[in-house]
C-alpha cells in the first residue's frame, strides 16, 4: 500500500524524485506520511484539498481490502 501512495504522488508532482513516504503503524491503523518538494505542495493538495481528498479515498479503498484503518498525512 506504501507503493500505491508513492505511485499516486509521483504521477502528480513535478519532482517525482523528492517524493517520500514514511509508514507509521500501530495496532489498528497505519499512517502514511507523505513528503513532497515544497514547490509541489499545491499539486498534491489541490484547490480546497480536492486532490488530497481523492488520494485518501483511493488509499482507503485499497486498505479496505486489507481490513486496516489508514490515514494519509501530507507533511
Amino acid at each position: 500500500m506504501k507503493a500505491l501512495v508513492e505511485i499516486l504522488a509521483r504521477n502528480l508532482v513535478d519532482n517525482p524524485g523528492e517524493v517520500s513516504v514514511n509508514v507509521v503503524e500501530d495496532a489498528e491503523s497505519v499512517t502514511f506520511e507523505l513528503r513532497v518538494a515544497p514547490a509541489d505542495m499545491g499539486k498534491i493538495i489541490g484547490k480546497q484539498g480536492r486532490i488530497a481528498k481523492a488520494i485518501r479515498t483511493v488509499v482507503k479503498a485499497a486498505a479496505a481490502k486489507e481490513g486496516k484503518k489508514v490515514n494519509v498525512e501530507i507533511l
Binding site: L8, A54, A61, K65
Partner: peptide
C-alpha cells in the same frame, strides 16, 4: 467493487486523479 467504492466514490476519485495525471 473495490474500485467503485460507496456510491462510486472511489471511481470518482480515480477519475479526478487520472484526468490530472493525463493532462499534465
Amino acid at each position: 467493487g473495490i474500485l467503485i467504492g460507496r456510491r462510486g466514490d472511489t471511481l470518482d476519485a480515480l477519475q479526478y486523479l487520472v484526468n490530472l495525471v493525463a493532462n499534465r
